[in-house]
Amino acid sequence: MIQVQDLTKTYNGKVQAVKGVSFEVAPGEIFGFLGPNGAGKTTTVRILSGLMDPTSGTATVAGAPIPGDRQQLHRLIGVLFENSYLYETMTGKELLQFFGDLYRQPRKLVDELLELVEMTPKANELIKKYSKGMKQRIAFARALLPQPRVLFLDEPTSGLDPASAVRLREVVRETAAQGTTVFLTTHNMDEADDLCNRVAIINEGVIVAMDSPTALKESFSDRTIAIMMQDGTNNILTLNDPDLNQKMAALIGQGVVKINTVEPSLEDVFIRMTGRGLQ
């Protein structure tokens, strides 16, 4: 559904934001694009949604070539922008109706989407009176308005409270289940782990790892266990330690409270791959 080949983007002939990324996303897949600030995530989304041309490289999104006919592409995709600004002098409903008209969608769909993002009670209030999370929900509904084949979500849950974030992830999952391909960027590793079938980790414009979250965690596992003793101390043992059996036996004799396997989180993988924590 998305094929990307050797995509690069250099801003003003100086800043190399994307340095040759290639990947494919299958229909109905939720693909996560993870990376620290300035890694090139938003740049990639803007290229794939036809807002700017790549410096080199090609892509196809839902069959539409990039670079190519933007109007063809724009009938097939929905985009939730990072920090989406909305027309503040409109109500939520007016905004969706306006964009719905441009997409030639029936008014009924607007009501359904308002219901879906749980904004029906506030639909007739001016957007300037909305909280950040309410605006984000309207922006999300707008991204769904074209009933897209490919949905781009640039940090969809930033600014949402935990309950709203959970609700939004549910909707993303439902949308994907109905066949929409989802390309999502996030800083939230738990979200990526929970939602994505596959993730790519991008750092300084280069993809440094790409696989399913489980496989990534697996490959970074150093296979350790933590053994907690009665006196409250912790002993860490590696599973491929040749003296493992003896050490275990010794510890058990001293009174063990709990044995845990230590699995790396996606966050650990991320930090190791990018050489830095989340900023």
């Binding site: 807002l51 109007q71 989406s84 909305l86 707008r142 074209p146």
Partner: peptide
């Protein structure tokens, strides 16, 4: 500047 234009530009409107 506010990037509301981006949202318009990804609709079928040119």
């Amino acid at each position: 500047q506010l990037k509301t234009l981006d949202a318009l530009l990804i609709t079928p409107a040119s």
